[in-house]
């Protein structure tokens, strides 16, 4: 049987709580760097992964007991795929939000203070895929290394 994970694969599960998110992301980013994630992609991955985990913590488990979030990373020569799974509430409409933030071309008091999470994820990834099945959310983020930003 073909192994699901090899040395280029990294998996981490942790409770979907705000206090666990930052150490979890730090551990994943350190593991990815160790496995050869290109340095010029490290910040992009950290920002997008942080926003995706924050969404699980703040929205998927909003109003229900938080369970775990599981992150599986697969690193290939020219791309990284990160699968984030949780058993919380589905994304609205069962699809990832477009992530268009409120305009910043406005008065001081009308400046948006939120809504940037999905926008950042869209800007930093080359592909986003989402599936809701069996009470589980599976969000996959792809980072291509060939395309320099």
């Amino acid at each position: 049987m073909k192994p699901i994970c090899n040395e280029a694969c990294l998996e981490l599960s942790f409770p979907a709580r705000v206090s666990e998110a930052s150490p979890g992301v730090a551990q994943l980013c350190a593991g990815l760097a160790h496995r050869g994630l290109p340095a010029h992609k490290a910040d992009d991955v950290k920002i997008a992964l942080t926003e995706a985990i924050n969404n699980v913590v703040e929205h998927a488990y909003a109003g229900i007991a938080p369970a775990k979030v599981r992150v599986t990373c697969r690193l290939d020569q020219d791309r990284l795929d990160i699968l984030i799974s949780d058993t919380g509430n589905p994304l609205p409409g069962h699809r990832p939000p477009d992530g268009v933030p409120a305009s910043i071309d406005t008065t001081l008091q009308n400046l948006p203070e939120g809504g940037f999470g999905w926008y950042l994820i869209h800007q930093l990834t080359s592909d986003i895929w989402y599936e809701r099945s069996d009470g589980c959310n599976r969000l996959s983020l792809r980072f291509d290394f060939a395309r320099h930003r």
């Binding site: 950290k46 920002i47 942080t50 926003e51 924050n54 001081l108 400046l111 203070e113 939120g114 940037f116």
Partner: peptide
């Protein structure tokens, strides 16, 4: 060394608090 969108929002809110 790191900021997320919530931190960004908090800095925007801090600017609003200062007023015009």
């Amino acid at each position: 060394e790191f900021i997320d969108s919530s931190g960004l929002g908090a800095i925007v809110a801090s600017m609003k608090q200062l007023g015009e």
